[in-house]
Amino acid sequence: MSQIKTDLYPEAMRGGGRESAAFKKAGKVLRAEIISGGTGLFLAFFIMGHLVLESSILLGKPTYNVVVGLLEKTLPIAQVLIFIVTIAFFFHFVYASRKIPPRLADRRKMMELGLSIKKSRRWWNQPKSDIRLKNHLETSLWIWQVRTGMAVLAMGAFHLFLVMWNLFSDMGFAGHAGLTAQISANRVGSGLWILYLLLGITVVTHLSIGLYRLAVKWAADSLDRKSIYILCNLIFWVFLALNILAVLGFAGKVSL
């Protein structure tokens, strides 16, 4: 078994069993796919849980304080989770961005094709034809996933930093560190509501498209694509509403 690195010499790859360079290279590709999909799935579920728990502000500040107290003081879940999420966040960025074409010209090519197939749907008169023509917007959805992903990378990194710092030290939002309704409300009130709103919209878009793609990629044979599409649409609208309501709740404009 040779120890020579062959990444720079693809022609040196030859097949033949589990110890071969070609097999190991294939293993790396598989690992990258698992990491990007796995961190994506984890982050998606984390965000959904995050939005649900954060929406407890709609039931009033005391309820919210009970929820965050459970997560921060009773059990140090928040302190541990924020590090895990930050690590997953950057791993997800590195591994999920590997398929974005590096050249602008290539991205434009994708865009042109995506738009052309999406627009074509309007011109077909389906029932008359013997070809079953399906609506196609997934190529442009992917482009939106990349765009929202970039937005989430910028805004999410800021949000993660702020929350992590504020979790352990007083940043002057409410005179104490940690998680309380007062800190959150003051953060929203300080003008950061625009960040939370935009981050919420982009992250929910990104995760609903991502979950749809993940389900189709790995389980298209056992799940019905149309049902997945409807479910992910539902996830999108429900969590979008939840995010907007929660921001309004922190701003003191809405409560149940």
Partner: peptide, 29 residues
Amino acid sequence: EAWFELVSTYEGVFGCIGMMACEDVCPKN
């Protein structure tokens, strides 16, 4: 193992970004 070397690559199934146009445009369904 042979399939793995052939298909678990960026030229193979893991190069796919999952934009699903292939199935939607396939005239043979």
